[in-house]
């Protein structure tokens, strides 16, 4: 069996880091402006005009802070989920596959504390990623073709209990191989999603390579 490592692991922390930077810069910019306006308006005796002069910078800056907080929450979700479940060990019988080839996926994951799991989904996916320019922006769109999907129904896991799963998967005969070109990418992935009751979902993706060969 060959162990797989999750793809896009650093991306999760990048979102958190970006959120922290964004919020920090927004606060550093907003507070002196609000302070300056407060100082200027404090010379007047009218509390209504004082409030009005503060409302605009607070509302404007508040939007930026809210965006930053959304990124922080998004970045914290996998870390929060990681407090409940450990990083899974995923292995496949063969990580370089051919079109039409079957393989076995072994999945092991330990629960750190008693956890109610609503569903565990393991999917084999062919993902199209296309990148293009729109004005001055670079946009990437993705589309997932779900080739196979397995679900484990809701159940309770005790702290220290390990979830073991073994699945037979198949790259359909004639299915496209892994392809990577300038701004166009076709990638094969195994996607795992653990839906935890009352907690953020734990999800990870693992790349596999499909060669341009038939079984």
């Amino acid at each position: 069996m060959q162990k797989l490592s999750s793809s896009g692991g650093c991306g999760k922390y990048a979102i958190l880091l970006f959120g922290l930077l964004w919020t920090g810069i927004s606060c550093v910019t907003m507070l002196p402006i609000a302070g300056g306006m407060l100082a200027a308006s404090s010379s007047s005796d009218d509390p209504a005009s004082m409030l009005m002069s503060l409302a605009f910078p607070l509302a404007f800056g508040g939007c930026f802070v809210a965006v930053g907080l959304a990124f922080i929450i998004g970045g914290l979700r996998p870390i929060i989920a990681g407090a409940r479940v450990s990083k899974p060990e995923v292995a496949v019988s063969n990580s370089t596959l051919r079109s039409g080839e079957e393989f076995t996926l072994d999945y092991q994951q330990m629960f750190k504390a008693g956890t109610d799991v609503e569903r565990i989904t393991i999917q084999l996916i062919l993902r199209e990623s296309a990148t293009y320019r729109r004005g001055t922006d670079t946009v990437t769109v993705t589309h997932d073709h779900i080739v196979q999907s397995f679900e484990t129904p809701a159940r309770h896991f005790e702290g220290g209990e390990t979830f073991n799963d073994r699945r037979r998967m198949i790259i359909p005969r004639g299915a496209m191989h892994t392809f990577e070109a300038y701004r166009n990418k076709l990638a094969w992935l195994v996607k795992v999603k653990v839906e935890i009751k009352g907690w953020p979902d734990f999800d990870e993706e693992y790349s596999i390579r499909v060669l341009p060969e038939m079984v």
Partner: peptide, 10 residues
């Protein structure tokens, strides 16, 4: 390779 392909975006 690459094989001909007709997909959603590509």
């Amino acid at each position: 390779e690459p094989w001909s392909y007709a997909g959603h975006y590509i």
